[in-house]
Each structure stands twice: as C-alpha cells, then as structure tokens.
C-alpha cells in the first residue's frame, strides 16, 4: 500500500470512529431518560388508585391515603403564578416588540435574560423576604408569587419573538383601516401570534408545576385540605421531596406515584393547549 493510500484509509477510519462516537454519546444520553421513565412509571403505577386523587394523606404509620390536597394545591399555585406571570410577561413582551427599540428596551431584554438564569431557590428566598416576612406566616400567595416571577422571562421572551414574527404588512393593514394601534396590536397582531405565545405560556406553567425549591419556604406544604391562598398549601412537588426523604416505605412509594401523576399533569397541560390552539381554518 502506498503512503498516500494508507493516509486516505486512516483518515476514513478516523472519520468513521468519530462519527460513531457521536452516536454513542447520543445513546448514552437516552439511557438515563429511559431509566427515569421506567422507574417512575413502574413504581408509580403500583400505588396509583382512585384514593390517590380523592383521599387525604394518612398520618404517619397508617398506610393508604392519597394526595387530593396536593393535586388541588399544585393547580392553585400555578394558577396564582399564572395570574401574575402571564399578564406581566405578555404585556412586557408586547412592549419590547412594539415599542422596545431603544436603550430601555435593550436593558429590559437583558434583565429578562438575567432573570431566566436566576436559580429558582433564590426566587424563593426573595418571595420569602417580600411576602412571608411582612405577613408573618407562610402562604400559597407567597408561593404563587415565586412561581409567577419564574414564569416571567419565558413568557416575555416568547411573546416578544412571536409578535415579531407577525409580518409588518399585517400591522399596516390594520392601521391603514383607521383601527387604532392598540386595537391593531391586541385584536390582530396578538391574535395572529397567540399560538406561539400560548406555547410560551404553557412552557412557563409546566415548568412552574415542576418547581419545588421556591415553594419550600413560601407555600411550605400542608397535610390538611386548604384552598385558602393566605394559608400554607400542599403541592405535589413538596410532597415528593418530603416523602422521598422519609424513612417509611409506604411514603416512599407514594412519592413515586406523586411523581407519575405530576408528569402526567404536565403532559396533559401541554395536550390541552395543543387542542385549544388548533387552527380554526383547516388548511394551511
């Protein structure tokens, strides 16, 4: 074999090896995913029953019971969070895309990036000093505020980007008809972009549903039925945390079920949005 041919073969082998390594890396990444899903589903499903959705947690030592309060609690907490995060996110995103072509807009854009990088536990600490300390007790309201703050960057940035995707000609068409800019923006531009915005909102909500850290010392948790937003409130994630650390096997098992239910809830949220945002006109 002449040297140049040898070199050629060597190059080809190196290439094949490196490219296969990239496949191996991808497969390695899929392994933990499969394992986590396998355990969550197989362990979670054994304790999944009607009681889990309708019954209250049993005291230590008694087996059975459910997490009805935590399921409602999680929904209420993301509801409060959404009530704060969605308007702030959509409105500030609208500002950034429609009027934010200036220094202040650039600053706000940078700060939303900063906010999206802030660890959720830090947001929890801020919600604690802002709400829990003045109120002198833990509350679902404080937890909802923390979740709302966490949603803001995602919703703001998706809103801005989705509105920017709406062609300028559509805006001009509205304005040229003598429709005021605010009506054009809300009824035409936002309406055109709303599917994308809804996806951002969904992402924000489902992330919030999976948050634990910012709830630990805001909404705290509650072993009893409570829908009072000014009182501590149970959530699935905090239950998973507490039950996973507990020495009781029965609770450990319920933690798996709670994890399964949480993941199902998050997927249903995304499914729900997909149905709602389905196009009115069939063809595209």
């Amino acid at each position: 074999m002449n040297p140049s041919k040898f070199f050629h073969v060597k190059r080809k082998i190196t290439s094949a090896v490196m490219m296969s390594l990239s496949l191996v890396a991808t497969l390695i990444a899929v392994i933990p995913l499969i394992l986590i899903f396998y355990y969550t589903i197989s362990k979670g499903i054994t304790y999944l029953n009607i009681d889990f959705f309708v019954a209250m947690p049993k005291p230590v030592g008694e087996s059975g019971g459910g997490m009805a309060n935590a399921i409602v609690g999680t929904l209420m907490l993301i509801g409060i969070g959404g009530a704060i995060g969605i308007p702030v996110g959509v409105m500030s995103g609208t500002y950034l895309s429609e009027f934010g072509n200036n220094k202040f807009g650039a600053t706000v854009r940078f700060l939303t990036d900063v906010l999206s990088g802030v660890p959720s536990i830090v947001v929890g600490v801020v919600a604690y000093t802002l709400v829990v300390v003045p109120m002198k007790h833990f509350s679902a309201f404080a937890g909802g505020i923390a979740l709302g703050i966490l949603m803001i960057p995602t919703i703001t940035r998706t809103t801005e980007e989705m509105i920017k995707l709406v062609p300028h000609s559509i805006r001009e068409a509205g304005l040229a008809l003598g429709i005021p800019k605010w009506k054009t923006t809300i009824l035409i531009v936002l309406k055109t972009a709303w599917k994308g915005i809804a996806t951002g909102i969904l992402l924000g909500l489902s992330r919030a549903a999976g948050e634990t850290a910012p709830l630990l010392f805001t909404a705290l948790g509650n072993r009893f039925w409570s829908t009072n937003v000014m009182q501590p409130m149970a959530s699935l994630t905090v239950y998973i945390y507490d039950y996973a650390k507990s020495p009781f096997e029965d609770w450990n098992n319920q933690a798996w079920t709670a994890a399964l239910v949480l993941i199902i809830m998050i997927s249903m949220l995304s499914l729900l949005f997909r149905i709602i945002t389905r196009s009115k006109f069939k063809t595209k």
Partner: peptide, 12 residues
C-alpha cells in the same frame, strides 16, 4: 422532568 423527580430517582 422536574428536578425533584430526578432527586427521587437519585435517592432510590
């Protein structure tokens, strides 16, 4: 996947 579920899987 929520962080706490990773933790749960981590523990067990």
């Amino acid at each position: 996947i929520p962080s706490v579920v990773y933790g749960l899987w981590g523990i067990f």
